[in-house]
Amino acid sequence: MLRLILSPEWFLGADIIIDFFSFLVLLTFAIISAKYYSLSKNKKLLYLGLSFFLVGLGELSKIIMNIGLYYDFTIAYNVGRMIITSHVVESIDAVYYIGFFLHRFLIMLGFYFLYYTTKKNKSKSEHLLVLYFIAISAIFTNDMQYLFNITVTIFLVFIFVNYLKIYRKTRAENTKTLATGFFLLLISYIVMSFSRIDSNIYITANLLQLASYIVFLYIIIKIYKHGKKK
């Protein structure tokens, strides 16, 4: 199977570092949520932590697959006999397929969880229905990356609007910053949808992703410092 690497050669690896940074920020949010859940037993904190953990795992899956794609071309070329080569290539393809499927599935599931964390009305049937559509989208967008990006953008639009509503209600500065972070992230997914056109678009999307996770990190630092001051 032909795999398209969207990153220009000089940017190879930089996108992995950005993804790794995103993963660390997501993991920090998940750990903080779990820690505060153990203190307060507020189940919403548990779901929040779970959603960040799922998105984080999705990012990790992408990181592992990209490392394989960028730095491990030798397996397919160095095998001597054709039959073995074919088997190896097929098994590598299967690993990539599963890896990128997990990336798409976990990210969509994580963002869906994040959206529903602050919602009151939840029904099991609704969850199952969305879960079904997420699985279908994750399976069938393997060769249509832009469709996955559009689906995530839709989730992020809902999340962004949700935090904007919360900000209007509470006027909490951190919520405004959080909404800004999600706005940057949703723009990065929109830009990423067009990344096949030009490699500069891919770089722009990655930089926007980096900016959004810097904003999220800033929130963590601000909360930590504020607590220390008191």
């Binding site: 903080i32 949520s33 505060y36 203190l39 307060s40 507020n42 919403k44 904190l45 929040l48 964390t117 602050t118 949700n162 935090y163 919360i166 209600k169 509470t170 909490a172 951190n174 919520t175 959080l178 929130i219 909360i223 930590y224 504020h226 607590g227 220390k228 008191k230």
Partner: peptide, 17 residues
């Protein structure tokens, strides 16, 4: 502990929980 609680409250408020 009180500091940690104030951080927790701020964290919850940020996410509207």
């Amino acid at each position: 502990f009180l500091n940690e609680i104030s951080r927790m409250k701020e964290f919850q408020e940020t996410f509207g929980l």
